[in-house]
Design a protein around this nucleic acid. Structure first.
Lengths: 195, 195
DNA sequence: CATCTAATTAGAAATGTGTCTAATTAGCTG
DNA sequence: CAGCTAATTAGACACATTTCTAATTAGATG
């Protein structure tokens, strides 16, 4: 086994040898996320989060897609991390996330909220609409079924046009519907940000 | 995923996140070894080696079998390390060992050598004879074939009774013979110390 | 049982890693 | 282009890990 292969192996194991990074991978295995969202989920600052993401990227465990100002990281092991490709399934890794930190909504969402916490408007650009819809989806329990009036009622606490929100949520597969009954889908089934 | 499962996962990755420990695992994947032999192979002191072995053991990657005064460690992942069991084959891990450090024979062997480097006697106890025979086996190239007189000649540089040594080496499957031709076997085929 | 040997444990110095604040870069928005 | 936003980079400090020497433990040997 060559010098560089050992070095790659070492980078790989070192990347996984810290709780913050396991949790980061967990959240990324659920769906692609931006740095500030991850920082808020973990309760760390953005520079620290950025540092950890750099290590994960170096180990070939995550990818980065830059979209304007936003950096979308995703759990996507490369050939650099053959062990990861064969062993770490998205499903399993998603469980490493653990408890998210007290979810004060991140700045991006805050910008679209009134002081009373209601939505000012639905962001026009796809890349800003996505996190806002994700935040709305979190208003629903994963294991509960809802009838349409209930869905509307919940959404109306956040925005006057509940019908549009409902349609958008279904479009992104954050909610789904069958025979008039709605329920929330787990994040790994959402239409991915980057697709 | 529970608190303790994450903790176990973390112990596992941390155990693998240091070059010395990857190399230790490499040497152990070849065969069971004592602390002082490992220390000598890595070029570390015994306390340091002992410390690393403790971490590996805690992570469920190696086992320890005490035999009198000697502690035999072996690469033998437990259920504590499910990832290891499924992914880290003995064969592959053996390559992590890398270059052994300048092999000044360890104390145990030194005790059986004259000042000129010749063997004083063949240790009577199985557990001391084993490392001495391993040291003798290293006198032979892995990829070469030897005729019996050659084998005797090499062994006679170390001890007067080459015939007994030759028989012992074959018995432990450190050497093997077919139609009067001898060759050295890789360590993973030796009769294991602990069996 | 006195002594020797292999290993571990204690404790200290050196090195490495994680985290923060402050400064900087790069992209977007009016 | 002036100002704003998301992210990274720099630098400093705290915390954790590695490694050593010295002391201790536990088994073997005469």
């Amino acid at each position: 086994m060559t010098e560089t292969e050992i070095a790659a192996l070492l980078r790989f194991f070192k990347a996984l040898a810290h709780e913050s990074r396991l949790r980061l991978l967990g959240f990324l295995a659920q769906r692609a996320r931006t740095v500030q969202e991850l920082a808020s989920l973990l309760g760390l600052t953005e520079p620290t989060t950025s540092h950890h993401l750099g290590l994960l990227r170096n180990a070939g465990l995550v990818t980065l897609r830059v979209e304007g100002n936003l950096h979308w990281y995703d759990f996507e092991p490369s050939e650099l991390a053959p062990l990861a490709k064969s062993v770490l399934s998205r499903q399993n890794v998603a469980h490493w996330a653990g408890q998210a930190r007290a979810e004060k909504p991140d700045r991006l969402i805050q910008n679209y909220l009134e002081s009373d916490g209601r939505l000012r408007l639905i962001p026009a650009s796809r890349k800003k609409r996505y996190p806002v819809l994700a935040w709305l989806a979190a208003h629903f329990d994963l294991d509960r079924r809802y009838r349409e009036p209930e869905v509307n009622q919940i959404l109306q606490t956040r925005y006057w046009d509940s019908a549009t929100l409902r349609r958008e949520l279904v479009g992104y597969r954050m909610l789904t519907r069958e025979k008039g009954i709605y329920w929330r889908l787990p994040e790994e089934q959402w239409v991915r940000m980057d697709k």
